[in-house]
Design a binder for these strands. Structure first.
Lengths: 155, 155
DNA sequence: ATAATATTAGTCAACATTAGTCAAGAACAC
DNA sequence: GTGTTCTTGACTAATGTTGACTAATATTAT
């Protein structure tokens, strides 16, 4: 709990702001300086922790007055939302990204906590582990899509 | 008592912390160093002494700020039932037999209807279809066992 | 207007820092 | 002696950090 890396700390900082506001707008160099990291680390944090699967949309502008804006996504109606997740899953999906998909479903209210936990159990590395990573990612994608399709007509 | 091997000693150390706390979070290299063993021995201790059957759930993260976290969980009173299903599933299981396992869970009240449907979506033939039937049966078995293990405890 | 310069953010690959896996051999129990 | 458990280390994988280089946009000079 204590020895958090700096990326986690920056993530928390931003999410704390987002807890009270729909969006946060930063100047990359300023935040990098504030946390004493190189500017590109801010990109790393955003790329790994503020993806669309996580429910965030990021916009930015370069040049004078440039910024990075992170916005919490409003949930679309369920069908479009599930479509977008099916697209996000694609033919194969990493474990990391699949966690974000399940989290999105939960936060959207499409599934409850115990359903989410069952799905996580179905796609974790004890469950899917053929020894071939690409094969695993494909199987994981198929399972998620099968579940998403089920949720589409169940909900 | 006298001839405790080092794995037992590390186990005791961790369980002593867990006696007073719901979870313990360690840095693998640090504990390995403290007990003067190679880091992978920590994995051995965890794998042999902190299993779900023992009532522990383990999570970890690699990279900077990485950790291993062991959490005590409340086991439910359906353990024998789950054990019997795990045995029934074995290393591989047909689709037909897997349906019976899910039905048993439902009829026993371990899962509700929508949870059952999600599990069925995860193991149906759209979800698991590598083209190799035996491989499919093995994957299906692993998924079911992972879910069964999840159903052992309160989360 | 156009060109030059300044000011931002983005990408990518190298390197660093953790944990995981696996198999060989040692130690132990019977 | 045989089978199981423990110990070890080489190799692998995941995640985080850094900096050189690139790209976009704004501002200033001509």
């Amino acid at each position: 709990m204590e020895n958090q890396n700096i990326s986690d700390i920056i993530e928390s900082y931003l999410k704390q702001i987002l807890a009270e506001s729909q969006q946060v707008e930063i100047r990359r160099a300023e935040i990098a300086n504030q946390f004493n990291v190189v500017p590109s680390q801010i990109n790393y944090v955003i790329k790994t922790r503020f993806t669309i699967q996580d429910g965030y949309v990021v916009q930015s502008k370069r040049g004078g007055g440039g910024y990075i804006r992170i916005e919490k996504v409003k949930l679309l109606d369920n069908l479009d939302f599930i479509d977008s997740l099916v697209t996000a899953v694609g033919d194969q999906i990493s474990r990391h990204d699949s966690l974000a998909v399940v989290r999105s479903l939960f936060e959207a209210g499409a599934i409850n906590r115990s359903e989410a936990n069952i799905i996580l159990a179905a796609i974790n590395k004890d469950a899917i582990n053929t020894g071939d990573r690409q094969a695993d990612e494909q199987i994981r994608a198929q399972i998620l899509i099968s579940i998403l399709n089920h949720l589409r007509y169940e909900s």
